[in-house]
Nucleic acid binder design. Structure first.
Lengths: 137, 137
DNA sequence: GTTGTTGCAAATACTTTGCAACTAT
DNA sequence: ATAGTTGCAAAGTATTTGCAACAAC
C-alpha cells in the first residue's frame, strides 16, 4: 500500500525529477477527468506556471509510458489523458450529443474479451472499448 | 437482395457519380482489408489513374458517410478504411508484434454492450472495440 | 446552364524534433 | 562535471480547404 511520490517513480525509471513534471502531474490530478495537452497547457499557464507546450507533450509521454496516465483517443484527432488508478480499470461511453465521457466497467465484458483473444491464440495486452451513445429518447 | 451500383447509391444521396469516385471504390474493393488514404492513393496512381490526394480523402469521406466504408482508427494517427459489409459486423484484434488486424465477432459481447448502455439510460449508436494482442508465448 | 467536383497548393491541427541554454544529480 | 530536460521555433504528419477550371446532370 505504498504511495510513491512522483519523484520516486521518476528516479526509479531513470528519469529526472523536474518542477515542470511535477506541475503537469499536479495539474492533471487537480483537473480530474480527461484532458488534451492544450487544456493541460492552458491550465498551467493560467495558474502562472511557465511551461512550454513541448514540455507538456514530453511530460505526458513520460507519465503515460510509466503507467501514471492513460491515453484516450476518441477519434477526433486529439489525444486525451487521465490519471490512471492502479486498481480500477474502466472503459468509456461517449455521448454524441453532449460530448460527455462516462466511465464504465463490466466484469463479464472483461472476461469475455480474454476468452475471445485466447481462442485466437493470442494474449490480451490492452484494449480500447468505446461506446458512442445517445440519450434515450 | 438488390445490389445497387455505386452510381445509384450516389444519386440517391444527391451526389454526383464521377469516374474518380468509381475508381476509389473499385480499388478499395480489389484491395480488400484495411487501408489508409495514402495506400489507396498509391494504388490508384500505380494503376495509372490520375487522381489527387484531396479527391481520395473527399471520396472516402463521402463513401464512409453513406455507409459504404467503415473507418478504423488504431491509435497511430492514421485512419484506415474497409468496405462495409451490410450484414456482417465485426471488431478488431490488432497484433502488437506484426501489426496484423484480425476481425472477430462475438454475439454475447454485442449483447452485453447493449445492456450496459441501456443500464446507463443511453442508446448505443456505434462502438469501437479493439483488442491489442500478442502471440501466445 | 447550374451546381457539384476536381486538382493544386496553401492552410490547418496536433504533435514531434533540433539545438543551444539550462538544471538535476 | 555529466547527461537529461527545457523552451523556442521549425519541421512533420495526416487531413482539410479555397478557388479556378471542369464535368455531371
Amino acid at each position: 500500500m505504498e504511495t510513491r511520490t512522483l519523484k520516486q517513480i521518476l528516479h526509479k525509471e531513470g528519469f529526472r525529477y523536474t518542477p515542470q513534471r511535477q506541475m503537469v502531474w499536479d495539474t492533471l490530478g487537480k483537473m480530474g477527468g480527461h484532458h488534451d495537452c492544450e487544456e493541460i497547457y492552458d491550465a498551467l499557464r493560467e495558474k502562472g506556471n511557465r511551461v512550454s507546450r513541448a514540455t507538456v507533450y514530453r511530460t505526458i509521454e513520460v507519465l503515460a509510458r510509466n503507467g501514471l496516465l492513460k491515453k484516450l483517443e476518441v477519434g477526433d484527432g486529439v489525444a486525451r489523458y487521465e490519471v490512471r488508478n492502479e486498481d480500477e480499470h474502466h472503459d468509456h461511453m461517449i455521448c454524441l450529443e453532449t460530448g460527455d465521457i462516462i466511465e464504465f466497467y463490466d466484469k463479464d465484458l472483461e472476461r469475455l474479451q480474454e476468452e475471445i483473444v485466447q481462442k485466437h491464440g493470442y494474449t490480451l495486452v490492452r484494449h480500447v472499448h468505446q461506446l458512442f451513445v445517445r440519450k434515450k429518447s
